[in-house]
Each structure stands twice: as C-alpha cells, then as structure tokens.
C-alpha cells in the first residue's frame, strides 16, 4: 500500500508503507567542511558550524544558504574538517590552571578602574 499523507508531496511519491531498509554504502557520504563567517570587512572570521559537501567549491555554495542567509555577511571561509588539527580532550589538563590566572585577564588592568569611573560619571550626568 502506498502511504497516504496529509502532505500532498509525500502522497505523490507513492512510497510503500513497508519500507525496506537499504544499508548505506561506505563513502556514499560527503565529507564535512567547517564554515567561518565574517560580518564586516576587517572583522575576524567566526566559526559558525559545519556542513556536508563533496569539494570546497560546493561547500561555499551550500554554506551561503546554511549560514549566511539572515544576518549580514561579507565573506565566508570553508575548511575541510579533516584539515583542522586539534588538541586531544585527554590533554585538557594543559589548560587546567587558566581559571586561577586572573591577573592575565584584561579586567585586571588598572585602566579598567578608570573606564568604570568614567562610565559611572557619564551615567550620573
């Protein structure tokens, strides 16, 4: 029996309600690309996600609609996921003491006091 759906597109497909499971062959999937989005010339590119594509040219074309459809964008980068060299989560301990090093945070600079004072004055005036 073909599937009768409320969605006419599904009904038109004449799909059987007894699906036979077709195994997915190896390599029948495209590789993934990481996408980086730049909102303004000169801004840094920000990683926004990944997508499937057979090659970089197609990745750019598809990335435009996946990741640059709504907000302002002037430039896109795509990078093959397998080309990204990454640290191991096993080595996470190399970052362990970071939270303790507050003296390395920009907020620790003296100038912050002056900025806050200025902001406060501006608010009061």
């Amino acid at each position: 029996m073909p599937i009768k759906s409320l969605d006419p597109r599904v009904t038109r497909e004449n799909l059987s309600d007894q699906p036979n499971n077709v195994p997915i062959k190896d390599l029948s999937h495209w590789q993934t690309y990481e996408v980086f989005h730049q909102a303004k010339k000169g801004d840094r590119h920000i990683h926004v996600g990944s997508l499937h594509a057979p090659n970089p040219e197609m990745a750019v074309i598809l990335a435009k609609e996946q990741f640059a459809r709504r907000y302002k964008c002037v430039n896109l980068w795509v990078v093959k996921t397998s080309d990204v060299f990454i640290t191991d989560y096993e080595d996470e301990d190399i970052f362990e003491t970071n939270p303790g090093k507050i003296y390395r945070e920009a907020g620790g600079y003296k100038v912050m006091d002056r900025i806050n004072k200025f902001k406060l004055e501006k608010k009061e005036s």
């Binding site: 597109r9 499937h52 074309i61 435009k64 609609e65």
Partner: peptide, 19 residues
C-alpha cells in the same frame, strides 16, 4: 518548494527551498 523536505541532501534541500 515541492522539494522542501525531499531534497537530495539536507544542505541542498535548504539552499533550494531558500531560493
């Protein structure tokens, strides 16, 4: 738009629907 949800792969489905 009749391809929406039925496109060959997700990424292309979105791009084609958007166009």
């Amino acid at each position: 738009s009749e391809w929406t949800g039925l496109g060959p792969i997700l990424e292309e489905d979105i791009a084609f629907s958007s166009m």
